[in-house]
Design a protein around this nucleic acid. Sequence first.
DNA 1: TTCATGGACTGATCGACATCAGCTTTGCTG
DNA 2: CAGCAAAGCTGATGTCGATCAGTCCATGAA
Lengths: 243, 243
Amino acid sequence: MMIENSPLARKLGTFVALSDEDLSMLDRLHQRRRCFVAGVDLVHQGQTNQSAYILASGWVCSYKLLPNGARQIVDFQIPGDFLGLRSVLFRTADHNIEPVTQVEASEVIITDLLDAFANTPRLATAVLWAASRDEAMVVEHLVGIGRRNALERTAHYLLEFGARLKLVGLATKTGYDCPLSQYMLADALGLSAVHVNRVLRQLREMGLLTFQKGHVTIDDFDGLVALADFDKAYLDHDGPLLK
Amino acid sequence: MMIENSPLARKLGTFVALSDEDLSMLDRLHQRRRCFVAGVDLVHQGQTNQSAYILASGWVCSYKLLPNGARQIVDFQIPGDFLGLRSVLFRTADHNIEPVTQVEASEVIITDLLDAFANTPRLATAVLWAASRDEAMVVEHLVGIGRRNALERTAHYLLEFGARLKLVGLATKTGYDCPLSQYMLADALGLSAVHVNRVLRQLREMGLLTFQKGHVTIDDFDGLVALADFDKAYLDHDGPLLK
DNA sequence: TTCATGGACTGATCGACATCAGCTTTGCTG
DNA sequence: CAGCAAAGCTGATGTCGATCAGTCCATGAA
């Protein structure tokens, strides 16, 4: 069985060395596989008693709508990420979740997860670690919107995707597939789509990065890192931190 | 003993009805009381093996610095809030923490906390709840910076403080003490101090809110809620959600 | 083929907020 | 109470990014 190739196992494995027992416990969480089509909300604000999921394939976005019609995308989830954990704790969702692409996800029964926590503390550590990392990413996103200009912000965001996708084997040093439209990118970055377009052109003309036809090509990694003040360490490690 | 008057107990009590056992467990976490003076960093980026704290009195801010000299304040902590929990999990802090005022805080030994989790599941639920709420606030903050203009953003932020402080008995319907300078507010809201000043004047002239001499007076609560699109439900409850 | 739709892309114009430079008030300390 | 630093406050000017108003190009349906 290909347990250790699930995106989540792969990601957690870089944080914490997982035993066979941990891996099979992870596998047990992946029972109820479900599919969703792009564009149809999976969860929306105010909905109660939602389940949590682990993303197996495809991209998803979490966003909030404002009464003036604007929307802010808070985060994108990629394979290996948890979905809607906070909504479960809160009992009522405070944001919407929409698949960007077609999506496969495993429904997580919350008692299964708590079971897993009690029986495999190593796994629990890894999951908490991943959750902290997710929160750190939201914080970094906030900092970017608050204090970085459009160019730095965009560069930083796209670098971050590279790092996240590499953890689950969906990116190389030179680039990754990215199903986002410029509109979505705009709603994530707090910009207008028009301006995102100009910024992407600028990044391309500066020879740093090419965002085209659903694919991001990193043309000059070091240049991007310098421009965006990207902290290489914070998302990516050489091996498990906890042996 | 005045256990149930600690800000944390008071806050958690509005989420989950706590037993005497829960309360005395909470009390045990409050052993090592420490003090800090305003303006001197308590934690800074990159520092490792930091401890966590529970804030007993005073205000604290968590922020990040960018190489261009800008800073973004991610969150303020008020009495009853946890401090630096993520840094503990991550082993190395990804942000700075600075007391805004003189501060009293209890150092939390992480094993004590895990003990408390194992022995008093109700308390554990409450703490997780509080942590989710903190995360929800950061998300709301991100949405504000990304998609609300300066006026709405400021109004929303100051309303949120009112709601948070009310939970620990430090605010009334009509206002609260707020030790923040306009500079700090600016760094939290992603604005310049000059603009914050103008926005505060505008709020005052609109008869909505007065921010002066360390005190915020809510002049027209409903007006503010309408302007800021503030969700009254999300921070404030009439009684424990979990009986 | 024609039409419709949605994303990418561009120029012109406008406005919200930043920056700069200076003044005033407050509160602290010698 | 004089002197000073820090915060509050304000006008003038500049700029980044929004908005408006399109064109161009794919894809897919009729």
